[in-house]
Computed example of a mutant assay.
Amino acid sequence: MPPDTSHKQKTGRARSGEAGSVRTLERGLSVLSALAQSGEATLTQLAREVNLSASTTYRLLETLRQQGYVEWEEHTGLFRVGLLAYQVGAAFSVRSALLSAAQPQMQALVDDLNETANLAVRHAGEAVYLHQVQARQMMRMFTQVGAAAPLHCSGVGKVLTAWLPEEEVLRLLGAGPYPAYTPHSLTGYSALTRELGLVRAQGYALDDEERELGVRCLATPIRDARGDVIASLSVSAPTSRFPKRNIPEMLERVRTASQGISARLGWTG
């Protein structure tokens, strides 16, 4: 009996298919980029621009149109960038605007307090650090940009969760129990919802050695023009430099910075 080669054949076909899919994606993105640069164009113009046949270009445009990335006007025969492509670009624009608005406020805050400042947003079920301005202290808090923090036991995570509907909180975090990073971590759903209610009421969140012993963090919300909480600004420091009696003073300065960022994003509340 000849050896069974069906597994190898399937693997080969899968790899070939994957390569073809990547090539199609590359071509589709090149068509979309060309369309964005020209503003509007006919099929013939786009095919010439991307150096593809008219039939291939049409298939790519039709797929993009069905997905909402491209629009076609029948009476002129012109293709334009669609609403979904605009929404993707707008998301990048919002993040770019956030970083631009945050940098001067964060630098001023660090110059004032000489403690590390962090900017975070929520991504799925985690808080992700977008930007950091480090203090000049010999012993300073450092978080790598792009690193994630748990929502239930970080200052930024609590802020980014506190203004969400309860069903959304339950969807993101579940009903618990949650991981305990230190003896101070909140691990139960009831305790967490009480904490989030307190965050909403007082307008800030405190990570009181909940994620790492010996570290205290205070976080405040950043709002967009509609008043939605889209990010969180935090200052973290060793508990030896950030005792609880300093919370009111620290809060005033961090809140002023976060309100300044929000104002630059269009929030007037």
Rank of each mutant, 00 (worst) to 15 (best):
R194N: 12
E168C: 04
G174T: 06
A175G: 08
T193W: 03
T161W: 00
G203Q: 04
H184W: 09
W163P: 01
P183L: 06
T161P: 00
T182Y: 08
P177K: 07
G157V: 10
T161D: 03
L170V: 15
S185G: 04
R171I: 08
Y181P: 00
T161N: 06
S190V: 12
V156P: 04
G157P: 03
Y178G: 03
E168G: 00
A205L: 02
L173W: 02
Y189Q: 11
A162I: 07
Y181G: 01
W163H: 14
S190F: 05
E166I: 09
L170C: 10
T187A: 05
T187L: 03
E168N: 06
G188I: 06
A162S: 13
A175V: 15
H184E: 13
G176T: 07
G197A: 15
G174R: 05
Y189A: 11
E168A: 12
G188Y: 06
R200V: 08
L192V: 02
R194V: 08
E168P: 01
A162D: 09
P177S: 07
L198K: 13
E166T: 14
L198D: 15
P179H: 07
S185F: 05
V169D: 02
Q202E: 13
G203N: 03
T161G: 01
G157I: 10
L164I: 05
L192W: 01
K158W: 07
W163I: 08
S190R: 12
L186N: 05
G174S: 04
L173Q: 05
V169N: 04
T161F: 00
G157E: 03
Y189S: 08
A162M: 10
G176F: 11
E195Q: 15
A191H: 06
L164G: 01
A175C: 10
G188W: 08
V159E: 01
V156N: 07
V199K: 13
T161V: 00
T187H: 04
A180M: 11
L186E: 10
G188D: 14
T161L: 15
E195T: 14
T187R: 10
G197N: 15
L186Q: 09
E166M: 12
V169G: 01
E167K: 13
Y189R: 14
G176C: 09
S190T: 13
